[in-house]
Amino acid sequence: MTKYIDQGKNDTRSGYGEAMTELGRTNPNVVALCADLIGSLKIQPFIDENPERFFQIGIAEANMMGIAAGLTIGGKIPFASTFANFATGRVYDQIRQSIAYSGKNVKICASHAGVTLGEDGATHQILEDIGMMKMLPGMTVINPCDFNQTKAATLAIAEHEGPVYLRFGRPKVANFTPVDQKFEIGKALMLSEGTDVTIIATGHLVWEALIAAERLEEQGISAEVINFHTIKPFDEEALLKSVKKTGCVVSAEEHNFLGGLGESVARTLTVHNPVPQEFVATQDTFGESGTPEQLMEKYGLNNKAIEKAVLKVLKRK
């Protein structure tokens, strides 16, 4: 299988921050909004260089989404950022009416998604955001896998006309995608070809999928690993082409199995080519306090869980 090297662990939110700094220099229409979380979102350099293009909204996410919608009128491209929990569930109706239904060019940039936010616990660990966002007509949903890809995705969405939900996280995770890989919205990336099983992963579980694939290879199992950084629009072609070869799928994401990437996979398979699928995802539960590693282990979100799911799905072929 294709080998990938971790260039050094880094947090995806820093990829967002670095891209914002770059956008501040290259795109005069980009403006940034934040709800009292500048440090967490790593946007201080953008603010230092473009103070007039930064809006500190305070702890008022509903107002932030409305102001972002209003800023598009007149041609600005607002990047509204906060924790994923407060960027989605807390303000679902504001996003629905003022942004999605109104077709506003707002980029909702959400850090600290999922259980790997860690010790803060379930109040802050949203596992339902992908589902909520992908159900909104016209919303693009992106969950990049590492620092480099988060940076590339942030740059790419500035060029995309329409509302976007960009999801990333808190912990430092393996950084393995090429530094200057162009980000194509809606185009899944083949990472390693295989013949026995397809692993469809998103976010930092892509790295876990690669580790699992290596261990499976030692057992004589050839796993194909595809990075689905974009959940909507969903790259049906990439999935269907792969399962035609492998005949079974494991989906992997840091999200509830209801409403997430796995469900988009399942829907596509049901309509076009029903084959066995196993879900690596949380099982309709809230998270809890703990370290990211502990939580990934307990909630079945690491490479071991992916390996186990592959062995299970192979038996169902």
Partner: peptide, 14 residues
């Protein structure tokens, strides 16, 4: 309850 936020955004844009 959403219109004033949007109006503020448009005013900031101006």
């Amino acid at each position: 309850g959403q219109g004033m936020s949007v109006a503020i955004g448009a005013a900031l844009g101006k």
